[in-house]
Design a binder for these strands. Structure first.
Lengths: 356, 356
DNA sequence: CTGAAAGCGCTTACAG
DNA sequence: CTGAAAGCGCTTACAG
């Protein structure tokens, strides 16, 4: 922005022979900053307004010769609109904030990936914020993003926080992903977690596994709870007594650690023939515990989980994971944002999962 | 930003009894936008300048009572400085662009993670851009970031591109990570790849593996080439004939795919006792090929690679990976940025790797 | 101790 | 067809 290190030049105004002081970018062409509208206008001998209009595609409001000349100069000096000035004036930007719990999680990275692509295709720029699952950081980012004039928010597995509540109540355009808005209704993209859990149950029953374990975080979210409930309910609906299912959980935030710890609590002598993990990361952790306990996966014990990380086919061939179509999330997220901006209200997009 | 949907209010100017027109945020307190300096100033009965100074910590230039009153109002209306206005005026922001080749790669995600934390600690906000290893996208992002007034750039495994060249030549504050500046000297954070390759050779030799294979991308970067060279040179220096090393490569960008394909070319009957992969992802791909070929890893064939992804201890216990301290990159990157901004010139930070 | 004014780069009614 | 002017929110010499 601006012209740090730029010089000053005098230029004769086309119109009335008056002198005009204009700033010019460094003569060496070495300036980091792009030329401004003023530079282009001066070089073309037209007003800033005219250049602005042409930059914004209003070409019929200028003579063909002017348009041609201005375009040539723009090309010549490599002019690019300054988004900061534009944002300030228009009071909106092409920025969308993406708040994500943890970049280290491949599932999150996949969602970020597809959202970035979809936003870019729609002409927006994604502003990625890693909240580390912390309410205070989430709020810091929300306020910072607002200060940067972002036009919308995508909140992936959000954590409840005062700032989030404030934003939701103020009607900030926000799409929730995986985890629903904790403060009311709202746009949502995700899967049917109860059904995913039920599908895992069916998968076991098809293999005559009727005394499985289910592994989940002790301080679970709605998401993990629904998966567990879907699993257990289906099992019981199909005749498995409730106490035949081993429920194993562990505290903490890291799902790998939770999986490991929870699995360490399973009976070593009587290891279940099937282990349902509510996330891939939990399965990764449980896998190590199984190995350490001398259990052969999947020969002795079938592992099923929910996520379907791409890496599984390479590193975890022993895992049957219900695939969440993270690659398809981005398009739905952007479509919902556009719908909200268009005044069409929120909506829910429940995407189909499948056991690949 | 601004006051979409806000109303207008008349307020009596403290000083001269003149009328002043000020904007106010929506009376319902439901505005998405934060209050502006003007709002605070009007409520406090002082000028915008005074509020601005107090916001920026210049408290000794105002009476204690004024400071107190203004602070109370700021708290009351929840004022937060608008970064867009501030950036435009100051002609700099607290934004740092992070250009990264591929979020899907855990090594990249780890670098992004530690950089984000280090930047945040230093009072900056990271703007993450996924270039998908494409020169055109990298340039799009570079120009877009400049338009947003970012103050610095971090380029992780950058790809050569016209825009990058332009930025480098214009002296943009930029730190290169893993891969050096292709257009001259410049700030750099990474490891000694030749030595890492040599260490892998030593590891094999310590286990009497003298007929290893080395797997690498056909269109390799300087980075992968150095690792291969370091490996082969050390092998030969220690008496292994050059043709005893099987060099296997495959084209493409995806390292898992490259690893798989390259390993498929290894002699099934005479599979090498040691496989050196220039990255973890290549090892993941090669591992599958080995399994499919009936090779038991690590019993029949020892796998060594370079990266040290955190997930390895859970999912790839068969892999001995030289650990790159990605978690420590962030601090070095930020320290270099601060050094550049401070006029201290660039520098190289070669971090120690180790085989855990 | 405090405020009026200029200006960052841009857009947009408005006037000609 | 074109330009002067106002103003987005902020900072900062400058004047008092």
């Amino acid at each position: 922005m601006g012209t740090r290190g730029g010089g000053i030049a005098m230029v004769l105004d086309r119109g009335g022979g008056r002198w005009k002081l204009i700033r010019m970018t460094s003569s060496k062409g070495k300036s980091l900053d792009s030329a401004s509208l003023a530079t282009v206008a001066a070089k073309a001998g037209v007003s800033i307004s005219t250049v602005s209009r042409i930059v914004n595609g209003q070409t019929r409001r200028a003579s063909p010769e002017t348009v041609e000349k201005v375009r040539r100069i723009i090309e010549e000096v490599g002019y690019r609109p300054n988004h900061v000035g534009r944002s300030l004036r228009r009071r909106e930007s092409r920025l969308v904030a993406m708040l994500i719990a943890n970049l280290d999680n491949p599932a999150m990275a996949a969602i970020a990936d597809s959202t970035e692509a979809a936003l870019r295709a729609a002409g927006y720029v994604m502003f990625l914020c890693d909240t580390h699952d912390r309410a205070d950081l989430q709020d810091d980012y929300l306020y910072a993003m607002r200060s940067h004039g972002v036009r919308g928010y995508v909140s992936v597995v959000s954590v409840p926080s005062p700032g989030l509540k404030e934003f939701v109540e103020a009607g900030a355009p926000m799409v929730f992903v995986s985890r629903r808005n904790p403060y009311g209704p709202g746009a949502f993209v995700g899967i049917d977690n109860v059904r995913a859990g039920a599908d895992a149950a069916d998968w076991f029953l098809a293999r005559n596994i009727t005394r499985p374990a289910v592994l989940f975080p002790a301080q679970g979210s709605q998401v993990t709870r629904e998966r567990v409930i879907g699993f257990c309910d289906r099992m019981q609906d199909r005749g498995v007594p409730g106490d035949a299912i081993i429920r194993a959980s562990a505290p903490g935030l890291s799902h790998v650690d939770i999986g490991y710890e929870a699995a360490c609590g399973l009976p070593p002598r009587n290891w279940p023939a099937g282990v349902m993990c509510v996330s891939d990361q939990i399965a990764y952790g449980a896998y190590r515990a199984a190995r350490e306990g001398g259990v052969d996966v999947p020969a002795d014990s079938a592992f099923v989980s929910i996520d379907g990380n791409r890496i599984n086919s390479w590193l975890a061939p022993w895992l049957s994971s219900i695939q969440i179509p993270h690659d398809a999330f981005g398009a739905e997220i952007v479509s919902l944002l556009l719908q909200i901006w268009g005044g069409g209200g929120a909506g829910e997009r429940i995407l189909p999962h499948r056991l690949g």
